[in-house]
Design a protein around this nucleic acid. Structure first.
Length: 931
DNA sequence: CCTATTGCGTAC
DNA sequence: GACGTACGCAATAGGG
């Protein structure tokens, strides 16, 4: 229960500010502004936010008197005025806190302590786990056990100490939390000018309270205490009750904010960047980065939005007893080990309109994984886990796997019974390999999330649960450990396995209930999801299952050859350098080239270091022999380490083939991504590289057929822009780069030189990527002014393209997203950023996304169509690869012509554009020949 | 020891 | 700062 409850973190801002001010050296930024305390507080805040609290508040004192001043005019009278250097840091701190998205509480007439106390007690009473982040020990009085209910814990982020139980308080102070007030009253507080019993410190106070139980007990027995300290006590007797009132943190003040209002909002990254830059917080700035941190902020924003539209955390904190639990209650999940239980669940599955399922296995590779268990959810909170192959000492008896699968087969293969999953392609593989070819796979929460907002790079279940349900799932590592110590899921105890696995199905179902309506509210997105992505799941499953035949021996021969040549290059390099060094280490290489040999460092890495990349080495290749040798070595090493050594290792022993994984939610533009191994970046440019493709072969009696779209993205640019000249060029069937060169350089098409065509090609591609004159100049090796002239000339010949690009930028700015021809959306979170670099990057992405994304939509549609046709010919041809604009098939020889006709026709008809879609095909015994 | 980041390079 | 989308290798840096 504790790990399912929402969390509230209350930050005692004032205490941190003072503590950091006194603890840290008096740092300042380049402008001489003091930053020491700020630095400490910012680090503390970042550490706090890393814990992903759903609710948080930064509480500070408001100016003006409080009830304690009324009770005791000298309260805090000893306190010196705030030093100027500290005062100067208060406003910046508030700005940073605000920019981080943390609600700030500053309540007039109420001390921060009392605000925190009131919120803590209120939230804990509502079942929320509360953490008070403070360096003030007085708060120990609020610590309470978290046992079954929600507790209040103290954390001091600066020292890392944590007080989260009664025992922890006793260990630290020698008294229980409920005695802390009495303890403080006895000792007094010099900082707040509250005099206690003279000479009574922590030891004495704890001793007395241990003997007499409470302050009242101590007062009662004051006469019995001997010695000087007894006299001191008796002298202080009169003021002890007042002390107690002063040190008691109030938990009943009237506040306008309820704990559920304290939702962590999205961070304002632009503001943060500006503030961090101003105060020189480099690490914080780095973490802010362009990517991960921004996504996190986005995720937080959405999660916060979620909670606000629900009824606040009170609903999220609902317990198992609630009729409508917004969060699961661990323990309610059923572990199915008896036939009668299974039968009951089969009935539930039969009765449900749609249910969620999930497979547990012993491997992340769906082509190797063994089924260890299955989970199902029929309605939120109602889920089960069916362990099938758990095997550890003392493992309970489980139902027979074959029996269970046989019992489940009817419902799992019933196309009319809608099933849903999270990244279900994995589960489809596993079940297929265990004899169940799932039909009716209707919804996938990963794809719902991806289509709904592809900008969020993570679409895994844990992230989605956090983003859309405000819920922290049980992690795999929680039940199975991680790293080298991780155990197989089959070795996880059944109760742990149940709370993990059943939750997966449960959360999947809950996510679907949240995401489905969101998608339904956007009909074009719904269409992309329903008509492109969902049908593609089974198609990709088949392609992955087919795999591609790879001649491992051929690759091993190539590895040996590359190795010999690498060795030769290495020897030559050692000779030229006059010493040995690691050719694979950019750091060592840089030191050698730029420090020892004093060669000019013409290219810098993003971090400002001298780069040793290809461009940098090419630039100095005329000054020394070594750079050329390094380039030779690099090229060989790349091919060997990434391809010829690795691909043979990826051959599946069961099938003898290589099975890549296609990630349907891989690229924000809608493209697929391929991994393990990535078969979408097999070399083609160089001879050595292209040779690797000869190892992608067809078995005896079959051919490799490759069909690719000709210039699809440029055609889409023609379609989207409607530019007359460009459309005409494509209609005429001309070589598009040659035609562009003819336009730009103003000469007949057959007089265009090779160099002019090359320049035109660079312009065509560059424009699609939003390239500017600077980039084009670098690409072509011409002056920037010349490149600018080319671009200007291009736009004057193709004004429609220029208008299209401006329209696209404007659309991105106006609505925050751009879309493909089929309505797929890409949100651009930095399109309005104040940071010019970020904004320019977003504009380039905005220009590219409609073209790249539309191309992705088109080939996906074609794949679904082709797969539908190919199903009837599965014994004669297989679809084996997709490389963005290309589909590769393995085809029986006498079926090749039929296939090419069907495939190229279906590819060409996958979209109706203003220009024709042309498909080129090639045939060969291997992939290289098929090009 | 394991994970994250950096630098580099492959594809479309 | 300057060309969009990916994945992955080897070295290195950093946290436990």
């Amino acid at each position: 229960m504790t790990d399912t409850a929402p969390r509230l973190v209350l930050i005692d801002g004032s205490s941190y500010l003072y503590r950091a001010f006194h603890a840290l050296p008096p740092l300042s930024n380049d402008d001489g502004e003091p930053t020491g305390a700020l630095f400490g507080v910012v680090n503390m805040l970042r550490a706090t936010l890393k814990e992903n609290p759903g609710y948080v508040a930064f509480v500070v004192d408001a100016p003006g008197p409080t009830f304690r001043d009324d009770l005791y005019p000298d309260y805090k009278a000893n306190r010196p005025p705030m030093p100027d250097e500290l005062r100067a840091q208060v406003e910046p701190m508030m700005k940073i806190v605000g920019a981080l998205g943390i609600p700030i509480l500053r309540v007039p007439g109420v001390e921060a302590d009392d605000v925190i106390g009131t919120l803590a007690v209120q939230a804990a009473g509502d079942g929320v786990d509360v953490t008070i982040s403070t360096s003030d020990k007085d708060f120990a009085q609020l610590v309470r056990p978290d046992g079954s209910g929600a507790g209040i814990a103290l954390i001091n982020t600066m020292t890392g100490s944590r007080l989260d139980s009664e025992q922890a308080v006793i260990d630290k102070f020698g008294v229980r939390p409920d005695q802390i007030v009495d303890y403080l009253a006895l000792m007094g507080d010099t900082v707040d000018n509250v005099p206690g019993v003279t000479k009574c410190g922590p030891k004495t106070a704890a001793k007395w309270l241990g003997e007499y139980g409470s302050l009242d007990g101590v007062i009662e027995h004051a006469g019995e205490i001997k010695g000087k300290i007894g006299d001191n006590l008796r002298q202080a007797l009169e003021r002890l009750p007042l002390n107690r009132t002063l040190v008691t943190i109030r938990t009943d003040v009237k506040l306008e904010s309820a704990p559920s209002d304290l939702v962590l909002r999205a961070a304002d990254t632009d503001a943060l960047r500006a503030l961090y830059t101003r105060y020189g917080f480099r690490q914080a700035l780095k973490e802010l980065g362009g990517g991960a941190a921004a996504n996190e902020a986005q995720a937080r924003a959405e999660a916060a939005g979620m909670r606000n539209t629900a009824a606040g955390y009170a609903k999220a904190a609902a317990t198992a007893d609630d009729a409508d639990p917004a969060l699961s209650a661990v323990g309610e999940y059923e572990c199915v080990t008896a036939r009668a239980q299974l039968d009951a669940w089969l009935e539930r599955l039969q009765a449900a309109d749609e249910f969620a399922f999930d497979c547990e296995t012993d491997s992340l590779d769906p082509m190797r994984a063994n089924l260890v268990g299955l989970s199902f959810a029929v309605e939120p909170g109602r889920a089960c886990y069916l362990p099938l192959a758990h095997d550890y000492p003392g493992a309970p008896q489980q139902l027979d796997r074959a029996d269970v699968l046989a019992a489940l087969r009817p419902v799992m293969t019933d196309a009319g019974k809608r099933k849903l999953g999270q990244h279900g392609k994995y589960d489809l593989h596993v079940l297929r390999r265990h004899g169940i070819d799932v039909q009716g796979y209707a919804d996938d929460t990963m794809l719902e999330s991806f289509v709904y907002n592809a900008t969020a790079t993570r679409h895994d279940m844990d992230s989605l649960a956090r983003r859309y349900l405000g819920y922290e799932t049980v992690k795999y590592s929680d039940v199975a450990g991680k790293g080298a110590k991780a155990i197989l899921f089959s070795q996880v105890a059944l109760d742990d396995a149940t709370r993990y696995a059943a939750e997966d199905a449960d959360v999947t179902l809950r996510l679907h209930r949240v995401l489905q309506p969101k998608l339904a509210a956007e009909p074009t997105l719904e269409k992309v999801y329903r008509e492109i992505e969902m049908p593609l799941v089974k198609v990709l499953e088949r392609i992955e299952a087919n795999g591609v035949k790879v001649d491992a021996n051929e690759l091993r021969r190539q590895s040996a050859d590359l190795g010999k040549r690498m060795l030769a290059a290495q020897q030559k390099a050692t000779e030229l350098a006059g010493r040995t060094f690691n050719l694979d280490s950019p750091k060592q290489l840089g030191a050698l080239l730029f420090d020892e040999l004093k060669l000019p460092a013409l290219v810098k890495t993003p971090k400002g270091q001298p780069s040793t990349n290809e461009e940098a080495l090419e630039a100095i290749a005329d000054q020394h022999e070594l750079p050329r040798v390094i380039l030779e070595y690099r090229g060989l090493a790349k091919l060997r380490s990434t391809y010829t050594d690795k691909l043979p290792e990826m051959v599946n022993p069961d099938t003898g083939r290589v099975h890549t994984s296609y990630h349907q939610a891989g690229a924000a533009t809608g493209r697929l991504a391929s991994s393990e191994p990535n078969l979408q970046n097999i070399p083609i440019r160089t001879d050595d590289g292209r040779r690797i493709r000869t190892a992608f072969v067809a078995p005896e009696g079959r051919k490799i057929v490759a069909c690719d779209y000709s210039q699809i993205e440029l055609r889409i640019m023609a379609h989207l822009s409607g530019d007359e000249s460009l459309v005409k060029a494509f209609e005429s069937g001309a070589d598009i780069h040659r035609a562009t060169a003819a336009e730009v350089f103003g000469k007949p098409i057959d007089e265009v030189s090779g160099n002019e065509r090359r320049a035109a090609k660079a312009i065509n591609f560059g424009l699609m990527y939003g390239m500017g004159a600077f980039g084009l100049a670098r690409q072509l090796g011409v002056a920037r002014g010349e490149a600018q002239d080319y671009i200007a000339l291009y736009f004057s010949r193709y004004p429609g393209v220029r208008d299209f690009m401006e329209r696209t930028r404007q659309q991105a700015r106006d609505q925050g997203y751009v879309e493909t021809v089929f309505g797929r959306r890409l949100y651009l979170e930095h399109i309005a950023a104040r940071n010019a670099g970020l904004r320019a990057g977003a504009e380039r992405a905005a220009i590219n996304a409609p073209m790249q994304g539309t191309a992705a939509d088109i080939i996906k549609r074609a794949m679904v169509d082709i797969d539908g046709w190919l199903q009837a010919h599965a014994d004669r041809a297989l679809m084996v690869l997709q490389v963005h604009d290309e589909l590769v098939f393995e085809v029986e020889e006498d079926f090749v012509q039929t296939l090419i006709g069907e495939v190229s026709g279906r590819m060409a008809r996958a979209a109706e554009l203003r220009v024709p879609l042309i498909v080129d095909s090639g045939i060969g015994d291997n992939w290289e020949e098929a090009h």
